[in-house]
Design a protein around this nucleic acid. Structure first.
Lengths: 338, 338
DNA sequence: ATATGTTGCGCAATCGATTGCGCAATTGTT
DNA sequence: AACAATTGCGCAATCGATTGCGCAACATAT
């Protein structure tokens, strides 16, 4: 109930001047005398005036709003990625608004459309696992809203994407393990319908073949659901009782694999070494700390945000395909074999 | 560049009818003949018309937008809480927009104000650790925007809050440990300036005194930063070499405590038992699985969202103070002493 | 045939802030 | 003193969609 919001008109009436004058005074326009500006500011303060952004941005073409759509707020990676994005977005006087698609294409579509409703100035999108084509992004293009795909994407020639070089990271993992004598290893990967999973697997396998080692299919776990991990791992241990190392392509897989190793009473790294692609958080609270290829969410977020803001402000629609390199963090989970 | 957005006027012009008619046709207003409606819908489709929400909600008083402000996207709890909120929000045809205050009161203030700019219909707020009074929420009240505080709050008589019964949870933890013979225990708590920390500690201590056991101050760790944990834990083990159980008040503290126990080579639960208040995720990837008082983020989120939407739609400003009960999940980390 | 009711649509105002243009009052120039 | 330039401000239009009201055209009632 209570008094409706204070508007420019209220301030104008109170001072016996016109709305435009008040508007310009608050915007520090040179046409307005400083005496008037002071009086306006004082009254605005007293009435605790709050500008109506809907009205303001009805005229302006921009909204200074950047939207981020993620499949879900995962435990790992996503939080730090959001933090990184947020940092850059705020430094540039934009506001970040975060949506969650619940890994459902229908919701992703709905949210993308909603971004146009809000007239977001730009959109950051981490694709849902259901997304197989990008035609639902056309509306954004119609509205001239730049978009950047990050982390989880699919192949595209039309949109700017920012990922790590997944294949290269997989290969590096393999090379590292081989360099430490682990010729009999196991790789744990996610759903192969996702580019991120298939690329990392591909790189990992190639890393081994490059050194003349063929990995059997049973050495490359492909999980469609996390729940399958235990059974698949059991089988792998049965078929390859002599394996000396395990590589996991994400933190989610890492913590669960680590758990299952503990459960089996396997000592790390004495009996089995462990290597992961990781955000860097989980490796620090697992014992021993896990050697990993660091793929920092914060950095990905920051770079992505910079690029999007560049696109917004320079109105550029040049397509880019940025690959962020991972860095090796050596901790205590990989043993060197003779 | 390129064609600006399609507006009602474009559709009207194309059909030789007026804007209001188009508007009403799209809104399925009874005044409009179904023949006209069909033609309008067809053209709207063809031109891929997208309504401008800024303009629409400039007149309407509401925006169907609900804002959530969290200190940070933590690894634990927050993600599932957001998921829970999102579920209810969407069911009720609102959109959730998430902001992050980075645990800074200045940003929290800025974001609260931004909610008024956006004319959000309601605000959910998890207080930053720096927040000690709630005067910055007055602007929301001025704009008649209902607000609900959740999870991390401070004492307030003015605002609806939803938390778990922190003190009771702390007491239950103590009671459980005592019931299993753990008379010499250690509690690990966060910054005591936060209600959530002080209440849980208070309850835990009281749980022990209720059974005639006085806990020494060195048995109640109060961390202002996570980095202090190792040193404090070391000291505690020195002073209480005979302790048999550790309770951690959050997941963050749990995973790090678990790590430090592993590092010391302490076996759980044979040598030291472990109990936590937890979201339920971390306990499943630590070995052995950790017995905990379940404090599910999803449920908190859902209930909170329901309450806020109720406030929005019934325009009620009745103050509530909801306490959600935790449930005990017994896994393998607490031994029964003789 | 006149009065009354209904159907379908348009006019104009409105939401709150911004902006191009014009105009009066003041200051400066020669 | 006459003219030009500057200063400070207001009028009115604008952004895009919505809504109260009015008004034709047609159907129905008496």
């Amino acid at each position: 109930m209570g008094g409706n919001r204070v508007t420019l008109k209220d301030i104008a009436k109170r001072l016996g001047i016109s709305m435009p004058t008040v508007s310009r005074a608050l915007a520090d326009h040179p046409d307005i005398s400083s005496a008037t500006k002071d009086r306006v500011r004082e009254v605005a303060q007293a009435l605790s005036y709050i500008p109506n952004y809907r009205a303001r941005y009805l005229r302006a073409k921009h909204s200074r709003l950047i939207a981020l759509i993620v499949p879900e707020m995962n435990t790992f990676f996503v939080p730090s990625m959001i933090a990184g994005i947020n940092r850059v977005v705020q430094q540039n006087d934009y506001s970040l608004i975060v949506f969650q698609s619940d890994n459902a294409i229908v919701q992703e579509r709905r949210l993308v459309e909603y971004c146009t409703h809000l007239s977001a100035d730009g959109v950051l999108l981490v694709l849902s696992s259901e997304t197989t084509d990008l035609s639902h992004l056309d509306v954004l293009h119609d509205c001239d809203i730049p978009i950047v795909l990050l982390d989880k994407t699919i192949e595209t020639a039309k949109h700017t994407t920012i990922t790590i070089d997944d294949q290269e990271a997989g290969r590096e993992a393999a090379t590292y393990l081989i360099a430490h004598g682990h010729t009999r290893a196991l790789g744990v990967f996610g759903d192969q319908r996702q580019r991120i999973s298939s690329q990392r697997l591909k790189g990992f396998r190639r890393g081994y073949t490059d050194h003349g080692i063929q990995l059997a299919d049973t050495q490359l776990l492909r999980l469609t659901r996390l729940a399958e991990l235990e059974a698949q791992l059991d089988r792998a241990f049965e078929e390859h009782p002599d394996l000396t190392a395990i590589f996991t392509m994400t933190d989610e897989l890492l913590v669960r694999t680590h758990y299952l190793l503990m459960k089996r009473g396997i000592r790390i790294p004495e009996e089995v070494s462990l290597l992961a692609i990781s955000d860097g958080e989980a490796p620090m609270f697992l014992h021993p700390n896990v050697t990993h290829l660091r793929h920092a969410g914060g950095e990905v977020g920051e770079r992505t945000a910079h690029i999007l803001i560049g696109m917004i402000e320079h109105n550029s629609d040049a397509m880019m395909d940025v690959r962020i390199r991972t860095t090796l963090v050596e901790l205590g989970s990989v043993a060197t074999l003779p």
